[in-house]
C-alpha cells in the first residue's frame, strides 16, 4: 500500500510538468474556455455596461449604455450612465444631442461635446441627472459619463 501510494505520488509529480506546459501553451485556448464557461464580464463600473440603444447619424453613431447602479447584491442609489460616439475619425467637430436614459421617450439630458477639445457640457432635464462625471477620448470613440442619483 505504501509503495502504491509512493508510485502514485511520483506519477502526480511527473504530471505537474505537463500541467505547467498545458497552462502555458494552451493558455489562450483555456482562457477562452474559462470565459465562456463562467460567462463573466468586466464590471460595468469600468466598461460602462451594456449598450441598450444605438442611434445612427449617418457618418457616426451614438451608443447609449444602460444606467449603472450595480452593487454586490442589488442596486444602489448613486450611479452613472455612459454615452459613446463612434467611430472616432468620423465624428463632427461639435456634437449636440438629447439623451433619454431611463428606458422611456422622455429626454433626460442634453450633451454638447466638442470633439476636438474633448470639452463637454451637460444640461439636465431630469432631477435624477446630477452632473457630468467626465468626457473621455478613447481609442476608437469618445465617451461621456453622467452622474445619476435615483430618488
Amino acid at each position: 500500500m505504501i509503495r502504491l501510494k509512493g508510485a502514485f505520488a511520483y506519477m502526480v509529480a511527473v504530471l505537474m510538468t505537463f500541467v505547467a506546459l498545458a497552462a502555458l501553451m494552451g493558455g489562450t485556448f483555456l482562457a477562452a474556455k474559462l470565459v465562456n464557461a463562467t460567462g463573466v464580464k468586466v464590471s460595468p463600473w469600468y466598461t460602462g455596461g451594456e449598450v441598450v440603444q444605438t442611434i445612427d447619424h449617418g457618418s457616426y453613431r451614438t451608443l447609449i449604455h444602460r444606467p449603472v447602479f450595480d452593487t454586490l447584491v442589488g442596486q444602489k442609489k448613486d450611479g452613472f450612465i455612459q454615452i459613446d460616439w463612434e467611430p472616432l475619425g468620423a465624428l463632427p467637430e461639435k456634437i449636440s444631442e438629447d439623451i433619454a436614459c431611463f428606458g422611456n421617450s422622455n429626454k433626460d439630458f442634453h450633451i454638447n461635446l466638442d470633439t476636438k477639445t474633448n470639452v463637454a457640457e451637460l444640461t439636465s432635464y431630469n432631477p435624477e441627472v446630477i452632473s457630468l462625471a467626465g468626457s473621455y477620448k478613447l481609442k476608437e470613440r469618445m465617451a461621456v459619463r453622467v452622474v445619476l442619483c435615483r430618488e
Binding site: 482562457a31 470565459v35 463562467t38 464580464k41 468586466v42 464590471s43 463600473w45 469600468y46 450595480d70
Partner: peptide, 9 residues
Amino acid sequence: KTIIFPGTL
C-alpha cells in the same frame, strides 16, 4: 458574474 478590474478578458 463581473470582474472588478479595468482590464480586458
